[in-house]
């Protein structure tokens, strides 16, 4: 019944739990709708018609951190914004990932001054850094693909830690 009748003659597919879960995690990732500055506009371009992030199951941006599992820090993080960002990160449910988009978020960029946090990794752990000022949508998509690869390589023994 059920699965066998629908699969017909395809037989049985075997896989490991790791692969199945990692496939599920990469296939429908919900990013947090979090735009800060210039990079947010390129992030919007990546989601709009020409670049179409929904090809990778990522068109659904959630405004609530509770419902999202990826935060794309798109833009310069100021000292005033830093606690807000940390709070948003803390509110996200595990498993969660972080992409630092653009030079300002990655290392402070051209703004080595009193106002800007010199790299968002001073506040939250970052999985993938995307360089560029601002990065092209292709670069962001490449960053996301890199994150997907990273997630697919995760092992079951590390999940609990």
């Amino acid at each position: 019944m059920g699965v066998t009748s629908k699969l017909g003659n395809l037989g049985i597919v075997t896989t490991t739990l790791e692969t199945a879960v990692n496939w599920g995690r990469t296939g429908a990732m919900w990013p947090l709708l979090f735009g800060l500055a210039c990079c947010a506009i390129e992030m919007m371009s990546a989601q709009a018609s020409d670049y179409d992030l929904s090809r990778f199951g990522m068109e659904l941006n959630r405004a609530s951190p509770r419902q999202s599992d990826l935060i794309i820090v798109a833009g310069r993080v100021t000292r005033k914004m830093a606690p807000v960002l940390r709070q948003l990160y803390d509110q996200m449910a595990d498993p969660k990932w972080v992409i630092s988009m653009g030079d300002c978020a990655s290392c402070g960029g051209v703004y080595n001054n009193y106002a800007i946090v010199q790299g968002v990794d001073e506040i939250i752990p970052v999985d993938v850094y995307v360089a560029g000022c601002p990065p092209r949508p292709e670069q962001l998509i490449h960053g996301i693909m890199t994150l997907h690869e990273k997630i697919k390589a995760e092992r079951i023994v590390h999940w609990a830690s």
Partner: peptide, 30 residues
């Protein structure tokens, strides 16, 4: 306001006139 205060004006003061141009790009980024 002030969540995106970047200190652009102050940074331009430390640059020659031509080098100030790229910083102005990032004010009104639209």
């Amino acid at each position: 306001i002030g969540f995106l205060h970047t200190g652009i004006e102050k940074n331009i003061e430390d640059k020659t006139y031509e080098k100030g141009v790229p910083l102005t790009d990032r004010m009104d980024y639209l």
